[in-house]
Design a binder for these strands. Structure first.
Lengths: 247, 247
DNA sequence: GTCACCAAGTTGCCTGACAAGTGGAAATTT
DNA sequence: AAATTTCCACTTGTCAGGCAACTTGGTGAC
């Protein structure tokens, strides 16, 4: 009944799926679901490491690794000697956004929607409070983009750098980090989905016209115009994305 | 020179700060910085677990735990038999937003700014595509808020639920999760900072008037009006927050 | 020159053990 | 009997050592 039970031999339980998802990860995912779906309520104590270890047929280090993840994500807090407890969601200080299956069309749509919201507002803020240095940097990126176009290149990197310079001008690290992540995600998707055809035959120049409108609004510090220009640009970009998605 | 070197005895190296930050956490933070600051470049191989173990004077399980965190955050990828490598930031599929020191006034300001951007756009989308069920839920939350006010309560929970019902109507989990996090964070700050005085003497009713404007815009599916009403509400809320912050 | 094979190195996971901290029950005192 | 102290079982944090699975580069056979 106590702790001297013979250690269960369960190597055969190895889930060995293709490209092993790592035991700790699957366990962490399960516990994480238990919390999010309310099977484990805030403040409630988790089973002890040993109990989980027995219940799931994995070793304690593996359980510790899984719980460590949850702790890292702010879902649980542990107190040495006492146990592990489900954290109060109101006090959680870390937000985790996982874009899992990027082949899902809805997911892309939702991501792009969030991207539009963040970048449009960021562009507005940039117009409100860009410094002279910010403006110079943005102009430099715009010129670099034009140079790339003149060389006949699609200029994806220059495009990204232009937007990044604008976001930087918001002087808000949360906008910067989130926008950076979303932007990378979408651009990477476009790249891997081999939609580069979208960047052909005069399209870059059309994009550049929209960039210029954004730049000019930021230059004359007109927030409303900047937002509208950004919204227009993003709307068109989303439209181009949609169009090439169906192909 | 090989692996038979005597295990270093370094229990005295225990950093024992107040409320022990856990060895693995500090190690993960250091490695994480190395990556973010570019001392470790994308694609580059990390030192082996054993090397790190020796270098930092901790055991291999601890190193594993730290690397596990980085893996979880999408900063590194590991290949059994090969090693651990810094992940390509373009391919990173998880975004992590950590709101560390919440006593910092700038940080609050930045968070609120992001919250405003997300919720205003979310409210707009809610007006665009709320279902009848969504609308009913939002109305129920609005009524519950009114009931709380009539009972003379501040109705913070009802307020939160009202906003949550709106966000839910966007039908976009990214908006929902991010907004949920930011909202909780700000409200929790207000609570702990004992600014409840902000919720006195007719203020709830003033807030409710703004809520009603938002609700009506969503009801008649007027996106622009909904956004404007939400922006107005959030601007006022931010103003109230600022005012009570200086006290 | 090409290909199969092997050995060293690395991560993934396990067992067993001890230290540090917690909380409640038992023992002691009032 | 009630209050206080002491102590012990339990839990998490960390360590050591070991084996299995996998990768990679080099070596030898052809």
């Amino acid at each position: 009944m106590s702790t001297d039970a013979p250690a269960p031999r369960n190597r055969s339980h190895n889930v060995t799926l293709t490209r092993a998802p790592a035991l700790a990860d699957t366990l962490a995912a399960r516990l994480s679901e238990d919390i999010r779906d309310g099977r484990l309520k805030p403040g409630e104590q988790l089973p002890t490491e040993q109990q989980i270890s027995l219940a799931y047929g994995v070793s304690r280090p593996t359980v510790r690794e899984a719980i460590g993840r949850l702790k890292h994500d702010g879902l649980v807090v542990t107190r040495q000697g006492a146990g592990a407890f489900v954290a109060d969601p109101n006090a959680a200080s870390v937000f985790r956004l996982s874009v899992a299956d990027f082949s899902n069309k809805d997911e892309i749509h939702n991501i792009v929607e969030l991207l539009m919201a963040v970048e449009a507002t960021a562009t507005q803020h940039a117009a409100e409070r860009r410094s002279a240095a910010n403006l110079a940097e943005i102009r430099a990126r715009l010129d670099a983009m034009q140079a790339a176009i003149d060389r006949g290149e699609p200029g994806v990197d220059e495009d990204f750098a232009f937007h990044r310079a604008i976001i930087e001008a918001t002087n808000n690290p949360f906008f910067r980090d989130l926008s950076d992540f979303l932007d990378r995600r979408v651009r990477n998707f476009i790249r891997t989905a081999r939609l580069n055809s979208a960047r052909q035959a005069g399209l870059p120049q059309a994009v550049q016209v929209e960039h210029i409108r954004i730049f000019e609004a930021i230059e004359r510090q007109a927030p409303a115009d900047a937002r509208e220009a950004a919204e227009n640009h993003l709307r068109n970009a989303a439209k181009r994305l949609e169009r090439y998605l169906v192909l």
